[in-house]
Amino acid sequence: MTALDRLSRPLEITAAWALALLWASPLLYAFWAAFHGPEYAVNFDLAAPLTLENFREALAQAPFLRYGFNTFLLVTLLLAGQFILCTLAAYAFARFRFYGSDVAFALVLVQLMVTPEILIVENYRTLAGLSLVDSISGIALPYMASAFGIFLLRQAFKSTPQELVDAARLEGCGVFGVLRRVYIPLAKPTYLAYGLVSVSHHWNNFLWPLVITNSVETRPLTVGLGIFGAPESGADWSIISAATLLSVAPLLIAFLLFQRQFVQSFMHAGIK
């Protein structure tokens, strides 16, 4: 290590922390605004009294609890559907070299690029034909057969040792027995990673839910927040901050608690 390098180490630590502070500040600011009266929105007086008034007001002005419930239903329904459909499809691709499987797999991968929100016009028409406009299943349906999920699970299933499969078949397991007893248990880390990525993606998704919903009973949090935060809604700044925090709280808390799993899941899902 050169002398210059020895000197640069404390500098590097300072820079890392300065950048971290800068990166944290917008969110910290939102917390500040949400927990203080509007008169302190730009007045950073540490002695300012804390208040929950903004949260109360936000909940009174818009049904955020209902939106939260809708989002919860949406991500649960979607995840369950994705796990089932993607497991079956991935099992087909990993285990059976069936006629046309290569072409079929290439066609599946098209969805990695052409995600449903790009085709909003046609997909809206399709769902209108199915009378599923303004329903939670309508938001979920286009995303259920996820190419990303099929791809990740196929990779995981392919690395399952053949000896375990053979052993299970000797024990008398059929096609689904092998899937349930051998493939699925061994792919648990992939399910966790995919689950976290999928839940955070759909918790945050906006454009498609905006297009397909138009009532309080189906609107997810992001759409509710988008309507609430629009300048023409006339809501006060501190209240918007409180509403924003309410909307992101469940996911943010989950992230802070399971930070390692989140980071590792995103890594795992991104690299495969």
Partner: peptide, 16 residues
């Protein structure tokens, strides 16, 4: 601090 903005929805980020 670096990673947290990633888990926020773009709508919330825009609001802030």
């Amino acid at each position: 601090a670096y990673f947290t903005p990633t888990v926020l929805p773009m709508i919330a980020v825009a609001n802030i």
